[in-house]
Write a protein that binds this DNA or RNA. Structure first.
Length: 259
DNA sequence: ATGGTGGACAATCCA
C-alpha cells in the first residue's frame, strides 16, 4: 500500500468551498479525499481546479442536494455508484480503487427526526450499506470506508449526551446499525488511535451561535478501515483549522495517515 | 430565546 494520508470532508457545496479546499490540499497533500455534499451537477464539477494542483476526481452529483466525490493523486479505477440506494436516486455513494486500496465514500441521509419518513429512509439506507458490505466486500481485503454517517456512536462523541439522547444523529436505532457495520469488520480509525478522548468533533451546527467556539460539536464523520488497512495506519486526527478561516464548512477535515 | 446560520436556487428545502 502507498504511504500517505487519506481524508474525508463534508464540503457543504464544493463550489462554495473550492478556494478553501485548494489551499488545504496544497498544504496537506493527502493521497486522497472523500467529499460529501458536493451539491453540484456533474457538468459543473470543478475538476480542472483540482487537476491543476495534481488531483484526479471522480464524482456523482445532483441538483442542489447531496453529491459525493473522491479526489486522488493516483489514478482512480473501477469507479462505481452501485451501492446501497441503487434503487434510490440520491447521489450518496461512490466507490473506486486507488492502487491496492478499495475506497467507499458515503453520505448517509441526515434523517430529520425520529418517527418521520426521513428517519426510516436513513435507517433503511444504513441497513442497505451493511448488506452491501456483507454481499460485496471482505473484512480481509484492503478497504477504506469513509464519509459523513450522520451518527455519533458514543456519549463521548457529542457535546451533550444527556440532552441529545434519542435525537436524530444520536439515536439508539442508528447507533445499533452503525455498530453492526463496525462488527462486520471495520475499525473506527480515529477512536482506536484516541481511546476515551473527548472533544473529538467533526461537525458543529451552523444554527448554534458560536457553536464551534463553545465546542458544541458532534463526531459524525468517520474513516473506517478493515483490519489489514488499520494495521498500516500510524495516526488519525481532525483538522478543524479551516474553521477559523473565511467560509468554513460546518464540518472539519478528518485525516488518517498510513505507512 | 419556539429562534438561530448557511447553501442552492429561485419559493422553499435541506442540513
Amino acid at each position: 500500500m502507498e504511504s500517505g494520508k487519506w481524508a474525508t470532508y463534508n464540503a457543504n457545496s464544493i463550489r462554495a468551498r473550492l478556494p478553501l479546499m485548494v489551499e488545504w490540499l496544497k498544504r496537506e497533500r493527502p493521497r486522497g479525499v472523500f467529499v460529501q455534499e458536493t451539491k453540484v451537477q456533474d457538468k459543473d464539477f470543478p475538476s480542472a481546479a483540482f487537476e491543476e494542483i495534481g488531483y484526479r476526481s471522480v464524482f456523482r452529483g445532483q441538483k442542489a442536494y447531496n453529491g459525493v466525490a473522491i479526489l486522488s493523486e493516483e489514478p482512480l479505477t473501477d469507479v462505481s455508484f452501485d451501492g446501497p440506494g441503487k434503487d434510490m436516486t440520491d447521489a450518496r455513494f461512490i466507490s473506486a480503487r486507488a492502487g491496492d486500496l478499495r475506497l467507499i465514500n458515503v453520505y448517509v441521509p441526515q434523517g430529520f427526526s425520529p418517527g418521520t419518513e426521513k428517519f426510516q429512509y436513513k435507517l433503511g439506507w444504513m441497513r442497505a450499506l451493511l448488506s452491501f458490505l456483507k454481499n460485496h466486500c471482505m473484512p480481509d481485503e484492503f478497504l477504506l470506508v469513509g464519509g459523513d454517517f450522520n451518527v455519533a456512536l458514543e456519549p463521548m462523541d457529542v457535546y451533550d449526551p444527556e440532552g441529545l439522547r434519542g435525537q436524530v444523529g444520536f439515536h439508539p436505532e442508528e447507533q445499533a446499525i452503525m455498530k453492526q457495520i463496525l462488527e462486520w469488520g471495520l475499525v473506527d480509525i480515529l477512536r482506536m488511535h484516541h481511546p476515551g478522548e473527548r472533544d473529538l468533533y467533526t461537525f458543529w451546527d451552523y444554527r448554534i451561535p458560536n457553536g464551534f467556539k463553545r465546542r458544541m460539536g458532534w463526531r459524525i464523520d468517520y474513516l473506517l478501515a478493515t483490519r489489514p488497512v488499520f494495521e498500516k495506519t500510524t495516526g488519525c486526527w481532525i483538522d478543524d483549522k479551516s474553521r477559523t478561516l473565511a467560509q468554513p464548512s460546518d464540518h472539519a477535515f478528518l485525516i488518517a495517515a498510513m505507512l
